[in-house]
Amino acid sequence: MTDPICPLCDRPIPDGGGSLHHLIPKLKGGKGGPTVLLHQICHKEIHATLSEADLARDYSNVEALRNHPRLAKFIAWVGKRPPGFRSKVPGGRRKR
């Protein structure tokens, strides 16, 4: 069986390296809604970049996420890392 592919960065997700992302945040009505399996590092970057309100309003699909300027830069950077790469920097960097 092959590893699933992260829809954000298009790299394989090694066993145990995935994280389920609700396309519409649970707190904004997305409980039970569509989800995608992402790398943990990709999932963390989404939530470090965008608020729950931004995600619900403007970024409720993978294409919109990929087109966000900061996430596009992140995707270009992380795409050069091996599939199991994890950041060693703790904490989020969301700008408010």
Rank of each mutant, 00 (worst) to 15 (best):
T2V: 09
D3E: 10
D3A: 13
P4L: 04
I5Y: 00
C6T: 01
C6L: 01
P7C: 08
P7M: 09
P7V: 10
L8A: 05
L8N: 02
L8Q: 03
C9R: 06
C9D: 07
P14A: 08
D15Q: 08
D15K: 11
D15C: 09
G16E: 05
S19D: 12
H21R: 06
H21M: 06
H22W: 08
L27R: 13
L27W: 01
G30L: 11
K31A: 15
G32Y: 13
G33T: 11
G33S: 14
G33F: 14
P34A: 15
P34W: 10
P34E: 15
P34F: 14
V36I: 12
L37E: 12
L38Y: 01
L38T: 02
H39V: 11
I41A: 14
I41R: 05
I41V: 15
K44T: 08
K44R: 14
K44F: 05
E45A: 10
H47W: 02
A48P: 00
A48T: 03
T49W: 00
E52V: 15
E52C: 10
E52Q: 14
A53Q: 11
A53Y: 08
D54G: 12
D54Q: 15
D54W: 04
L55E: 03
L55K: 06
L55I: 15
A56H: 02
R57I: 13
R57G: 05
R57L: 14
R57W: 07
S60L: 02
N61H: 12
V62C: 02
A64H: 06
R66P: 00
N67W: 05
N67L: 10
N67E: 03
H68S: 00
L71G: 09
L71V: 11
L71W: 06
A72W: 01
K73Y: 01
F74R: 00
F74H: 06
F74S: 00
I75T: 02
A76W: 07
V78Q: 05
G79H: 09
K80W: 00
R81N: 13
R81I: 06
R81H: 15
P82E: 15
P82S: 13
P83L: 10
P83Y: 11
G84F: 12
G84E: 13
F85Q: 01
R86A: 12
V89A: 14
V89E: 15
V89W: 05
V89G: 04
G91Y: 09
G91V: 11
G91T: 11
G92K: 00
R93L: 04
R93H: 10
R94N: 03
R94W: 04
K95I: 14
R96C: 03
